[in-house]
Structures are given as C-alpha cells and as structure tokens.
Design a protein around this nucleic acid. Structure first.
Lengths: 316, 316
DNA sequence: TCAAAAGTGTTATCCTTACACCCATGT
DNA sequence: ACATGGGTGTAAGGATAACACTTTTGA
C-alpha cells in the first residue's frame, strides 16, 4: 500500500492571531512576499501533527501557542513546486492558533500585521468598505458578462450577491473563504495570475497577496474564528486576564469585522455567565472608570455551547 | 526542507453515508474488523486529495459520490503501524461523502451498516438508549473515582455530564466526537485497549469496534453531518428526486438521532422555501396519501444559510 | 368504524433588537 | 459644561414550541 509513488512530504502552516489596539493581527514572515509561518512535519520526532506544529512554531517565533485548531489539508499540485518534478509533493495542513499580544515579535523577519491588509473588503467596522462598490462590484459584473453561457452568468451573479450582500442581501461576516475564492476565480487577486488562471497583465489586484496558498489558509482561519467565537468562548484566548467589557467588545468587533450594539453585548456576556466582575476598576483613559472583568471558567461546565453572540447593530 | 526524514504516506478514508429504511447507513469494508473504505493517495496520478478519493472510491465501491467534504487529518503515530519501524509513517485524511441508497453494494466484502451499530448511545429516536444508564453512566462514574486528584475527578464528571446530558442537562446530538473521545479515554471502547491505553482484560466494550481510527473518523463524520444539516441543505443529497415530507423528516431524524415535531417540521421546510410540491401524490403505504415534494434549488440563491432546523420535540 | 398519516390554525413563550435614560469621570 | 464611556430598564417584534383540530385513505 505504501510504495514509493505514494510518498509525500507534509508542510504545516499556521495563522497565528492576536488582537492588539483593536486590530486583528496575524504573524507574518517576510520572505519575499508575505507568508504565514510554515515548516515541515517531522514524523520521526513528533507523535502528532499538532505537537510538530507547536515545536517548530516555538523555535521559529519564540511564541507559546495557546489555543490551536486544525483547519484544512490542501493537496493541490503545483503549490510548492518552484522546480516541477523535483522532490516529493508537498501536502499542506493549515492551522489556526491564538495568542495574547506580545509587542514586537522576537524572531527575525517576522511582524504582526492586521489581517485586513490582505482582506480589505472584510472590515465593516467604520463603514461598508469602499473597495466593494469601487472595485469589486464592477469587476464581478465584468466577470459575469464574460461568462460564455447565460446559466453560468446567472450563477456568477448569484454568487456575487450572496457573497457580498448585494441587492439588499445581508452581509454574512462568516463567508470569508467563499468571498476569497470568488475573487480568486474571477482573477481579481494576484494569486490567480501567479497560479496561471488569469493573464498576468490583468488590472485588478485586490488586497495584499501572500506566498503559496497562505491567503486561502488565512481566509479559512478568519472564517473559522468568526464562526467559532459564537458558540465557544475562544475570544478569551485573545484577552488579558482582566479586561473591561468594552475591551472585550472591541476584540470581538476586530475579529468579526462588524460593530456591535453596546448595551445588548454587555447583557449577553453577563447573562450567559461568560464573565464575572473582579471588583477592581480600570485605569481609565476617558470617561467613567469601568469595572474589570475576568473570564468565568465555570461556564464550560454549565452551558453546553457558551460563546459570544453577535447582537448585530442595524446598518447605518 | 524536504529531506528523507520528512517523508510520509497519505491514506484517505471515507465515511460514505446513505439513508435507507430510516437507517443512517455507512459503507463498511469487511476485512477482519469493520473498516471504512480507505486507500493511499497517489500524488502522481491526482491533482487534489479529493480527486484521488473519488477515483479509488469509484474503483473500489462502484459508487458515484455526490457531496464530498473533508473532515480532518490525523497524524498520530502508531495508528497504522502493525510492525513498528517498517515503512513510512501514514497520515490519514478523513472524508464525509453522501449518496442515495443503491440497494446492495456491488463491491465484494462491502456492506451497508447502520452507524448506530458503532454508536448505540447516539440513537434517541425511540427512547433514551438503555446503554447509557446501564453501562455508560456507571463506567464513567468508576472512571471519575479512579482519578488520582480531586480536580481531575471533577473535570471527568463535568465532561460526562455535558457529553451525555446528565443531571438534567440537554442532550446535544452534535457532540458525537466528544462522547466517543470520552469513552475512548475512559477505556470503554475496544480501540483504547488495542492502542494500549487500557488493560486488554477490561470488561466494558461499548459499540462495535472498527479498524485503525475509523470509528473516530465516523464519529467526526456524524457530528459534521448533524451540524451542517441545520444550515446547509445537505439532506437532499440523501433523498430521491421526489419524496413526501414525512420521508424527509424520517431522514433528518435518522441522521440526528432524535424525533422531531411533525407539524412544525413541515411548516419550517415549507416556509423556508426548501421544498416545493410536485402536485403528484405518493403511492402510499398507510393513511392518507401524501403529496410528493422536490428540493427547491433556488433557495441556494435566495437564502444565505438554508438548512433544516430541528424543531425538537419535548422529551417524553 | 378505527388507525394512521396528511394537513391547517392558533397561542404562549422566549429571545433578540432597539430605544430611552441615568451615572461617573477628565478636560 | 460637555464629551466620553459605563451601566440599567423596558418594550416591540419575531421565531419557536406546543396544542387543538380537521381531512383522507386503507384495513
């Protein structure tokens, strides 16, 4: 069953996320183009994929990972092949990891970057991102028109409508991967030209590109985190031991990319027993001092699916 | 980066599911113990993992797969190693695939089997499964008592309560994997003895065991399907072109393992625009003839997350 | 006539969302 | 004084879960 022709090598890539100053930062390795930290899986040294990941991430970034979750395994040919035919095929396993902010990363050539640099259409916190109306909608319209069959054109329009909340449809912040894949197929990201799917002289290049398929992995990571947050208390992996409720809200907003209703947000997290007051007050910046809260670990025992519900605010 | 020590071989395993006669059947290969269909990934012949899977599943089972979804990649050492130190390490990628029932499978040594044979505690359709009170609760209590620290004992009891809905907590049909893993760690399934985690003479052996980690993959598949069904119209991949609303309900019940409220179920699927009447009537078996419905493909264009909500019935 | 299943109508309850308002602090 | 953020109360609306009841067939 395991002859030579079945032999591959496994690469592990991690989207390591921290929230600082209301920005959802991801750890980026500058090696030519931006990349996620990645490394090979060594089956001799490591019992599981995850322990392999933790080890080399620790060595490479000097970070202790807290929460780690496997995302997806990609096996596309041609992804890592700079010189085709050389060496074994690389299958890559993508991971999401959460840490608390640590200031500047200690490893050389690594930096924290807001993920909205790679996905500018995903940040709806101040307003509907201008890039949607200015570049995405017209380009997707052209993509629709370029279809060689009416049914295909209609399918493309439907995808665009659902993905980007056009024609009055609601914006679904979890559809990060669907949006990226639509833009990729439509030839609107640099990666699709690089992979030979669109002519290299194509005009539209949305967002900052990344190495290999790392932007796809990052899109998967964002989508997973945005969804999981709602039914698992993973946000607290990104928070310090104590925090004000507004700080918590800003973190949830940074990740989800949408603004939330303040009063209802507070009520939800308190009523659900997700947090408890510490009695201490925050060293405030502006306004009335706020109480510091901490995560109530006990919810994990009490509620079957504790998480931060979004309580969306009406779009202005 | 890809020296010899990083070389592994990739195995693909598929939980292929069909619902017939109100049973959630999974395709089983009889090779000693029960196994899921599995085969090696050939990186030379196939561009993606999924195309590799479709090919050998077609060759091996003569089935055309419709819906296919990747579940998880497992890299645990010792899983496939019958003779340690021989051959490269196998990393296995698990898949969920849905098909319509086809009668007896055409491939030799393959059969359809209800997945509740492997997870008898998951079928709450007629009543709370007796095995929970008779075997699981006492065995988990013993597991709790055997803990060498009070904190560990408490953690074990909390897990048991949440997983199996004890002390009045609700049964969450989606926690299939959590339940299996708890039983595995507690040494209550044959696999944990086989993997050397419990003495081989341990008395309790819940459910039918499977080869390798296939029961874990199947648990992941069931959990994923039970969850996904609620926000994506995947049930219809398991239905014939036209069906009565009760047949649809019975299929959802077979998968979720819980009974649903009839009137509300009908209303939900109709109001959500998931189905439309065909005008034709069913060749009935008993009672008043029912209208035949078909899946409304258009919902995919209209609603952002169409799926069959469960509308649970009060537990009797 | 009864059992079994198809269907329809209505109500009570809870959760979500929105709105209105007051409180405490720094500039 | 006022801007900023903290914090509480409550009501409207929608979705859900439950109940009651009628209809149509086969045995």
């Amino acid at each position: 069953m395991t002859s030579d022709r079945h032999v591959v090598s496994i690469g592990l890539s991690a989207a390591i996320v921290a929230v600082a100053d209301e920005n959802p930062d991801v750890l980026i390795v500058k090696s030519g183009s931006d990349a996620l930290p990645f490394g090979p899986f060594d089956p001799i040294a490591h019992r599981t994929l995850e322990s392999g990941l933790r080890t080399w991430v620790g060595e490479q970034t000097y970070l202790e990972l807290g929460y780690v979750e496997q995302l997806y395994t990609f096996g596309d040919r041609g992804r890592h092949t700079f010189k085709p035919g050389e060496g074994p095929r690389v299958v890559s396993v993508g991971y999401l990891a959460l840490t608390r902010p640590t200031g500047e990363p200690k490893a050389p050539d690594t930096i924290w970057r807001s993920w909205y640099r790679y996905f500018p259409w995903e940040d709806w916190r101040t307003a509907r991102p201008a890039v949607i109306a200015d570049a995405i909608v017209p380009a997707l319209q052209a993509f629709e028109t370029a279809a060689d069959a009416p049914a295909l054109a209609e399918a493309r329009r439907d995808r665009a409508r659902l993905c980007f909340g056009l024609d009055g449809l609601a914006w679904d912040e979890e559809k990060v991967l669907e949006r990226y894949e639509l833009l990729y197929e439509a030839g609107l990201v640099a990666e699709s030209a690089r992979d030979g799917r669109t002519p290299a002289d194509h005009a539209v290049r949305l967002g900052e590109p990344m190495m290999f398929d790392h932007r796809r992995i990052l899109a998967t990571a964002i989508a997973r985190l945005r969804g999981k947050m709602k039914y698992r208390p993973v946000v607290f992996e990104l928070m310090p031991a104590s925090f004000t409720l507004l700080e918590l809200q800003r973190t949830v907003e940074a990740i989800s990319g949408v603004r939330l209703h303040k009063q209802n947000f507070r009520r939800l997290v308190e009523d659900q027993g997700l947090v408890e007051g510490t009695g201490k007050m925050s060293a405030l910046t502006r306004g009335r001092p706020a109480e510091l809260f901490r995560f109530r670990r006990e919810v994990l025992r009490e509620r079957p699916a504790p998480g931060v519900r979004l309580a969306p605010r009406r779009v202005v």
